[in-house]
Nucleic acid binder design. Structure first.
Length: 829
RNA sequence: GCGGGUGUGGCGGAAUGGUAAACGCAUCAGCCUUAGGAGCUGACGCCUAAAGCUUGUAGGUUCGAAUCCUAUCACCCGCACCA
């Protein structure tokens, strides 16, 4: 009796796979390509259970696809720039680079201990100059093309991180990383023109609908936020100015009775001089702009405003509309100005009621009955045009276009599509990031770093400031540089790029990870992309996935790539919970993977993560549950141990010929049925939990039959065959223990290189089947009949069944439904 | 408010419209053992003598519904004064 020494076994096979370069990938290999990728980790120091789950799912896919004959690319790397390195450097008085590379070394060891089948030759770290030099190259290409630009704009500022944030990194007014209150600040920053791709990013979501979860598509759709409408210009009375307005309801233009501007609107300062209302308006703007962001954007905030003293002209009615500044109008959406239609917009309705502004009904419900004087809320549905001049009587939906056409002809407006999506601010006032490759020259202005001077390396001989401010502006050797254009003294940009830029193209870099001359080898990248299966957490539904989609399109248009989308299929795995909440250090509810591996072994940890829940659902960690997983592998181990004499007597690669006894046929059937079920469950949405359940059943069957079969005519070979099939199908999930048993059974080739077994449909056939008998759809009995029994035969047997006849006695048989091999339903009245 | 999703034993979860609760955890009983936090065998939704009842709730379609449709409730997630 040999003990299941998982530690020794796992070390042995990890070394063997490594020594034989089992998982090195090569484009020239046979088979259809398959690129499976898990979201790469931030090197925070140690892996957590979420990583283990994510990478275990990916590894099963990779190993399974390899066994199915695919040429599989399965790489791993490190999202290595970012704030935590700086914070840790401050705390531990070290350097972010040292901290990061040490963490990478630690975590790489941890991942190797789990036996993942990565091609480690393609490993990348985004903080390495050989990685980010290509990012700088992209930046310069984008700059040349105008896809990246610099502008002074109000930006999201996190006072705690001392840096700006992209809109996507602000969650409910708080910094996504540290939960600090985000402030607005006016700064000159670099922006990527992601809005140029808004329409394609939206419409191409349709091409992903078979491979991406619905809710991720919906979140992206909402985030892009397309609205179709019109831009309309309102002339200001007594001033040579116009107010452009975006509206989705041009059909209500005749009902626009006043104008609302955002407090930050630049026109406000132009409007108020000479009206005698400067003090009041400025006080209001001041008060609103000082309000806490969360309070101000709360929905139940009372709608307030102040009259500016100016009027604009309704382009259709010619009537004067008072211009208000209103607290609910957002500068960041549309044009920051809203034409107010109290009768047909609830916010305008409330605002008008408060300030006693006129209300004009211009859309009537189809069944009439809308009284402007007694209405208690805005009527926002479509209807029939009224009080709208020549448009009266028209369907309001049709009138939208008609009014836009009319305005366009009069040069007062145009059809417009508005997006919620804003350009991506990629400047960060932090040290540990990729330098933005531009130089500021007093003579020449903004000068791109010449491509020949790339990479602009991040200087490592600096010390991070205890207050978190970037040390780069004070780093003379970095900042001071000769202008590439005129040669005079100039200064480098000291902002670095948002780390989401690095993660927007890493999946493509894996295809050419060691190429120092180009970001991507054209043949390699064309062969491998898109990623066939991407796996990661739902938290990246917008940020990373939207940016990556944008980057692929932008790089495509620069000629780097030929694909439109990066990720063909997306699996968003659930979180790993302990006691109902996400594991986190601060909550103190963390299960350490290393401890679990030491206690149960990597195979057991992998098995549990895959068995406890389907991949998309949250997984509740359960200390008893992992013991169950451990018990299963031990049971398998003991089974083979107990059968060692039998197995060694038949050797490897057995074939079974001849007529089988019933018990023998039953085991053979179970073997093939298990292969069929495991294959089906993996192919169908990666349902590893039910695949494992099927394999557990096979082990149970083997235990139940082994003593009878070890002495039967074909028993030994059937037992050997069933165990072999079990090992092959279980090996993607628990690779080490399977390799070890496989080896002990006398097979010489590595299990990792073994093809997936084919199940035999003939073996699945049975002589007899159980047929369920129902009366009026209710289960009454069951009978066993020959598998080839005729419909009539089954029906007559069913009628003769005692339980059935008891329930149909004295009643009229209306009809009888017979599903061959399954059930009989007798309908009586 | 808009959009997406989920409701099944004590727990995690299974069920191409066809025997609800596979597989596992927990629990209980028995066996084995000097001992066991090991292993083996079995029981395990509710109510039961039988019948009957059971997939959040109420309807519907169907010979037959956890599964399809309608309504409703609860919970989770995303966006949100978006003009």
């Amino acid at each position: 009796m040999r003990h299941y020494d998982f530690k020794q076994i796992e070390e042995k096979w990890q070394k063997a796979w490594d020594d034989q370069a089992c998982f090195r990938t090569d484009m020239s290999k046979d088979g259809e390509k398959y690129y499976v990728l898990e979201m790469f980790p931030y090197p925070s120091g140690r892996i957590h259970m979420g990583h283990v789950r994510n990478y275990s799912i990916g590894d099963v896919v990779a190993r399974y696809k390899r066994m199915r004959g695919f040429n599989v690319l399965h790489p791993m790397g490190w999202d290595a720039f970012g704030l935590p390195a700086e914070n840790a450097a401050i705390k531990n008085n070290t350097h972010p680079a040292k901290w990061t590379y040490e963490n990478i070394a630690n975590m790489r060891t941890q991942l190797k201990r789990l036996g993942y089948s990565y091609d480690w030759d393609r490993e990348i770290a985004t903080c390495h100059p050989k990685y980010y030099r290509f990012e700088q190259e992209f930046f310069l290409k984008f700059l040349e093309k105008g896809l990246v630009y610099r502008k002074k704009a109000p930006v999201n500022w996190c006072p705690s991180c001392h840096t700006v944030l992209a809109n996507e990194q602000v969650e409910e007014g708080l910094c996504w990383r540290c939960d600090s209150d985000v402030q607005q600040k006016e700064l000159s920053q670099w922006f990527l023109r992601i809005t140029d791709y808004a329409e394609e990013l939206l419409s191409a979501l349709d091409t992903l609908k078979d491979g991406w979860p619905e809710r991720v598509l919906t979140m992206q759709r909402n985030w892009i936020g397309k609205s179709v409408g019109a831009q309309i210009s309102f002339k200001i009375k007594e001033l040579d100015e116009q107010i452009p307005v975006f509206t989705t309801r041009p059909d209500t233009l005749f009902g626009a009775t006043f104008m609302s501007l955002a407090p930050e609107h630049p026109l406000v300062e132009k409007l108020i001089p000479g009206t005698g209302r400067e003090t009041e308006v400025r006080a209001f703007v001041e008060r609103v702009s000082k309000m806490d962001r969360i309070v101000r954007t709360a929905e139940d905030l009372e709608k307030e405003g102040v009259f500016t003293g100016r009027y604009c002209i309704n382009p259709l009615t010619g009537s004067e509309m008072p211009i208000y500044v209103a607290n609910f109008v957002l500068m960041g959406y549309g044009t920051g100005a809203v034409m107010a239609v109290p009768a047909h917009d609830q916010r305008d309705f409330e605002f008008a009621a408060k300030y006693e502004l006129p209300r004009q009904v211009v859309i009537m419900p189809r069944d009439g009955g809308l009284d402007p004087l007694t209405m208690t809320e805005a009527y926002t549905d479509p209807g029939v045009m009224a009080n709208s001049g020549k448009f009266d009587g028209m369907d309001s939906e049709a009138a939208k276009q008609a009014i836009i056409d009319h305005l366009a002809a009069e040069n007062m407006g145009k059809p417009t599509v508005n997006y919620r999506l804003r350009d991506w601010n990629i400047s960060r006032q932090r040290y540990w990031g990729a330098p933005i490759p531009v130089i500021y020259c007093d003579e020449c202005g903004i000068v791109p770093v010449p491509a020949s001077q790339l990479p602009v390396e991040l200087p490592l001989d600096v010390k991070v400031n205890p207050d978190g401010r970037s040390p780069l502006p004070a780093c003379e050797s970095f900042v001071n540089v000769a202008c590439p254009a005129c040669g005079k003294a100039a200064r480098r940009e000291t902002d670095t790029m948002d780390t989401f830029v690095e993660s927007s193209w890493y999946f493509a870099r894996y295809t050419s990870a060691r190429n120092e001359d180009a970001a991507f080898d054209p043949a390699e990248v064309a062969y491998w992309l898109p990623v066939d299966q991407y796996i990661g957490g739902i938290e990246h539904a917008i940020l990373h996935l939207l940016y990556s989609r944008f980057f692929v399109k932008a790089l495509r248009d620069e000629g780097y790539l030929t694909h439109d989308e990066p990720f063909k299929n997306l699996l968003t795995q659930g979180m790993v919970l302990l006691h109902g909440s996400k594991m986190s250090k601060s909550k103190g509810n963390v299960v350490d993977p290393d401890e679990m591996i030491a206690k149960y072994g990597a195979d057991t940890v992998r098995l549990f993560c895959l068995f406890a829940a389907p991949p998309e659902k949250d997984l509740e960690w359960n200390d008893k549950g992992i013991e169950g997983a451990s018990r299963f592998l031990n049971r398998l181990w003991r089974l083979v141990d107990e059968l060692e004499d039998v197995l060694s007597s038949v050797g490897a690669c057995v074939r079974v010929k001849g007529t089988l006894s019933q018990a023998e046929a039953e085991l053979r059937r179970k073997e093939h049925d298990t292969v069929r079920r495991v294959e089906r469950d993996i192919e169908n949405k990666f349902q590893f939990n039910t695949a494992i359940a099927a394999m557990m059943e096979l082990v149970n069957t083997l235990y139940a039959t082994k003593d009878d079969l070890r002495g039967s005519a074909h028993g030994p070979r059937l037992l050997s065959s069933a165990i072999s099939s079990l090992l092959v199908t279980l090996s993607p999930i628990a690779p080490h223990v399977c390799e070890e048993i496989w080896d002990r059974m006398g097979y010489t080739r590595n299990l990792a290189a073994e093809p997936w077994p084919a199940y035999d449909l003939d073996a699945l056939k049975t002589d007899e089947v159980t047929v369920v008998l129902q009366v009026n759809g209710k289960l009454r009995s069951q009978i066993t009949v020959a598998a080839n029994a005729s419909q009539e035969d089954i029906q007559s047997q069913a009628m003769n069944d005692q339980n059935v006849s008891r329930h149909i006695e004295g009643k009229t048989i209306v009809k009888t439904i017979v599903i061959p091999g399954k059930l009989v339903n007798v309908v009586v009245r």
